[in-house]
Each structure stands twice: as structure tokens, then as C-alpha cells.
Design a protein around this nucleic acid. Structure first.
Length: 425
RNA sequence: GGAGGGGUGGCCGAGUGGUCCAAGGCGCCGGUCUCGAAAACCGGUAGAGUCUUUCAGGCUCUCGUGGGUUCGAAUCCCACCCCCUCCGCCA
């Protein structure tokens, strides 16, 4: 959520920045709403002031046993109270419209974000290693999974439907090994605190991160309870500190969490239908940071590095892209995508997305900190990034590490996590 | 699921219709004392919105949330949410 005062005072700038994202928002409507809101606040508060003063007087009169005068005044005040109620309803309505409007305005891109329409305008920042050249015809992860009997998509669809996976044997083991490897790395080497949050969260939490009210159709909802399955650990973990005031000394706070993620993938019909690239349920290790405004962009760089190191250690070729204004998520002010090489598609595919949301989520979720030098609490900056998407890491390993005999070598760092297994064959 | 208890400022906790502009304590900040520190003592310490904007102040709201009663609600009434204890069921 943007600061209403900031929009009011920087209308042209905000307009331009929102347009750069390719979002159309009628900010003139906002101005009208804002003006009406402030007008009605003034009206109501003036009446309330009158009433409060009068009520105090009634108390005095009663103590002085001036019952007639009091009676008179009470009658007058009753009228004012009725008016307050009437205006109050109007005020509530306007405040609600005002808030609804703000909750649907996306974040402003940081000035370091390049302008662009879609993913083709993203800026490649760097590449790590080169795709391997095969001296045989490589096959895709679906075939590898079937031949090695570690991935059974037919039976998964019998159980739950399309876009679900059933891992078996060393396939399941590989998924689990990756989760543990990533968690240990971020905990031990990068200083994150491990958390294991609920896999469902309530509406307020989803509003806090910006997934609601705008993107409800992408979520799985548990009807009876008003809970939603988390589409990413970003939701429960960022909300750990909702409505809290932290002290500056505790910042930067760094959390890492493993959760399964549930997404309806509405609007992606016909996209990535083969394999396990795009699933309704997948595993992810997520990094979340709470930082001061002054440090958040440095923290974004280090967070992205923390995520990319996973791929370096797995020795998987990848590149990092700075997303352009038109390709960023709703809550983000700046995002780096990390993309891993997928041989069967002859291209890089997103495996991590690292964002600085600045104070956008903090304002929605009421997450503040008290500055060291004292004074008013300030909204802090929230950051998050995949570290990494586990299913896609499995795809990358199977395809990049395949041999001509359809066996798959296990990356060195994972062998201990695989109970010493060095090859799936 | 049943019964009972409870949600008050950064934290603990008192407060059953007007002087609550929320006692007291802890913590924090400043001062006195001291070579310095501790202790003691003194003083100050919530947030949001809005207006005027001498950036200082005025006003309004906030005691879990939303309604209601009343001239006036932390306090009375209704609904909901959350936490705790016990019982039942269960991994």
C-alpha cells in the first residue's frame, strides 16, 4: 500500500511510475475520494468536539444539581449525537472505499528498475557457467523420471488431478535432500533463522503481503474456515511481525522457511502442461528479511546472492535478470529473477524471484521499527526471495546431470543428503 | 465439541457510567549526586488520522473487533474473533 499523503503530494510521479508497470489506475478518482474523505472527517470531528464539550458540561451541571439546565443541554446534545451517527455512517463508507482503492494500487518501481513492457525487456545482470554440451540426445525430466521410476505423473493425476506430482524412491529422496541442503546452507552459512510456519493463513495475512484483495482467484481457499493455503512462505513468514513495533537493534531480521506452496495457476491454461515445471503444489525454501529503509537495497543484493549460491554449489548453469517495470509483481519495488538452464527447453527458467517490497507490505501489515535515535516508529522494509524452488531444482538436476545411459549423477554437495548415493540409475 | 476464565500503552498490571486527559510498576530517555559507575532521588516517556502549519500546537479516534444503550462507555447490553484452564475426541 502506498502512503496516501505521498500520492497526494506527488501525483504526477506516482502516475508515471504506475503507468510504467503497465497498470491502469485512475488516480484522479483517488484525489476526489481523498478530498471527500478529508472533508467528511472534518465535519464529523467538529460535531464530536461539540458533543464532548457538552457532555462534560452535563457532568458539571449534574454535580451542581442544576438539573433543569442539564435537561436542556442533554436534549440539544441528543440531536448532535444523531447527526454524528448519520455522518459517521457516511464516513465509514468513504473510508472503506478509500482503503479498497489503495489496496488495489501496486507498488512503485524503484528508480533503478529499467522501463519495459514484459519479460523480453528484462535486463540480464550476469551469467554463471555455461550450458553443458551433450554428446548424445538429452531427454526431458518427464522421460528421465519415468525411466528411473522416480516420478509418476499418471498416478499423481489419479490421486489429485493434473499438475500434481508423485515422487518415488530416490526421486522423493532427492526432493528431501534439496530441502535440507538449502535450509542448512542458509541457516549455517548465511545466518538465517529457521522457521516452520502454518501452511494456511487468514485473510489479514494475505492482505498484508499484497496477495489479497486482488489475486484471490490464484489461491486455494478452505471454505469453512476462511483460510487460504499459502502460495509461498512469504505470506506466513512476513506476517510473523504483523502489527508489531521492532527495535532497530533487532534489524536486519532474516528468516528461512520450507513450505509447500499451493497455486491455482488460473490463467496459465496450456502453459507448461508437461512435467513438473508448473504445479498446483510444489516445495520451496523461502528467504525473508526485515530491514531498515537505509539498508534494504544492500540486503536485496545479498539476499539474491544467498539464493544464487545454491545453484553454484549444485553446479547448475544460471543467469540473473533484473526485471523491468512491466514484469514485476504487485508488491515489489525491485526484483531479480534467477533462472536456471533447462536443456530440454533450451532456455533458462525462473527458479527464484528476489524482491524488495520497500514499505509496501509493511504499511499494509503494520510492521514498524523504532529508530535507535528515538522518535516515531517507522515502517520497515520487507524482502523475500526463493532460495530456491525445489521442484524446478529437481528438473534442472535430472536434465543437466543426465548421462547417455539415462542415469543421473548426484551433485557433490547433495551426496551426504542422499545417504551417500552418488548416482540414480 | 462441552464448561469456565480472560484480552487495557514497548512489557506487566489496576480500573464496574462523568475528575480516565488510564493508577502503580518494569523498561527506556534526560537530570541531580559521583573521579566514573551502580544505587537513590527528580522529571519525561503510546499510536493513528485530520486541521492550522510559527514542524509547535488544536481537534478526533484507539482499552480484542463490530454494533447497541446513553448527553456521556475501558466500564452496561448483543454478536464475532483470539488466548488460557479443565473435560471429551484424536495424530
Amino acid at each position: 500500500m502506498l502512503d496516501a499523503k505521498f500520492i497526494r503530494e506527488n501525483l504526477d510521479y506516482v502516475k508515471k511510475k504506475i503507468e510504467e508497470r503497465g497498470t491502469r489506475i485512475d488516480l484522479d478518482k483517488f484525489l476526489i475520494l481523498d478530498e471527500e474523505r478529508r472533508r467528511i472527517i472534518q465535519e464529523v470531528e467538529e460535531l464530536e468536539h461539540k458533543r464532548n464539550r457538552g457532555s462534560k458540561k452535563v457532568g458539571e451541571l449534574k454535580r451542581q444539581r442544576k438539573d433543569d439546565e442539564s435537561e436542556w443541554l442533554q436534549m440539544e446534545l441528543k440531536g448532535i449525537s444523531e447527526k454524528i451517527k448519520e455522518f459517521g455512517e457516511k464516513r465509514n463508507q468513504v473510508e472503506e472505499d478509500f482503503k479498497d482503492f489503495l489496496l488495489n494500487v501496486p507498488n512503485i518501481p524503484n528508480d533503478s528498475v529499467p522501463y519495459g513492457k514484459d519479460s523480453s525487456d528484462n535486463l540480464e545482470i550476469r551469467r554463471w557457467s555455461r550450458p553443458r554440451e551433450f554428446d548424445f540426445n538429452p531427454i526431458d525430466h518427464v522421460e528421465i523420471g519415468k525411466k528411473l521410476d522416480i516420478l509418476d505423473l499418471e498416478r499423481a493425476s489419479k490421486i489429485a488431478g493434473a499438475r500434481f506430482a508423485l515422487y518415488k524412491g530416490l526421486g522423493a529422496r532427492l526432493e528431501r535432500a534439496l530441502i535440507n541442503f538449502m535450509l542448512d546452507l542458509h541457516i549455517n552459512e548465511h545466518g538465517y533463522t529457521e522457521v516452520l510456519p502454518p501452511f494456511m493463513a487468514n485473510r489479514d495475512s494475505f492482505i498484508g503481503t499484497g496477495n489479497l484483495p486482488k489475486f484471490e482467484e490464484e489461491l486455494f481457499k478452505i471454505e469453512e474456515t476462511e483460510l487460504f493455503l499459502v502460495p509461498t512462505a512469504e505470506v506466513p513468514v512476513t506476517n510473523i511481525h504483523r502489527d508489531e513495533i521492532l527495535s532497530e537493534e533487532e534489524l536486519t531480521k532474516k528468516y528461512v522457511a520450507y513450505t509447500p506452496c499451493f497455486r491455482k495457476e488460473a490463467g496459465s491454461y496450456g502453459k507448461d502442461v508437461r512435467g513438473i515445471i508448473r504445479q498446483h503444489q510444489f516445495n520451496k525454501v523461502e528467504l525473508v528479511k526485515f530491514a531498515t529503509p537505509e539498508s534494504s537495497y544492500d540486503e536485496l543484493e545479498s539476499l539474491t546472492k544467498d539464493a544464487a549460491i545454491v545453484l553454484e554449489l549444485l553446479e547448475l548453469p544460471h543467469r540473473i535478470a533484473l526485471l523491468c517495470t512491466g514484469d514485476m509483481g504487485f508488491s515489489s519495488a525491485k526484483t531479480y529473477d534467477i533462472e536456471v538452464w533447462i536443456p530440454s527447453e533450451n532456455t533458462y527458467r525462473e527458479i527464484s524471484s528476489c524482491s524488495n517490497c520497500e514499505d509496501f507490505q509493511a504499511r499494509r501489515a503494520g510492521i514498524r521499527y523504532r529508530p535507535k535515535e528515538g522518535g516515531k516508529p517507522r515502517f520497515l522494509h520487507t524482502l523475500n526471495g526463493s532460495g530456491l524452488a525445489v521442484g524446478r531444482a529437481v528438473v534442472a538436476i535430472l536434465e543437466n546431470y543426465q548421462e547417455s545411459d539415462v542415469s543421473v549423477k548426484i551433485p557433490k554437495v547433495l551426496v551426504p543428503y542422499m545417504g551417500g548415493v552418488e548416482r540414480i540409475s
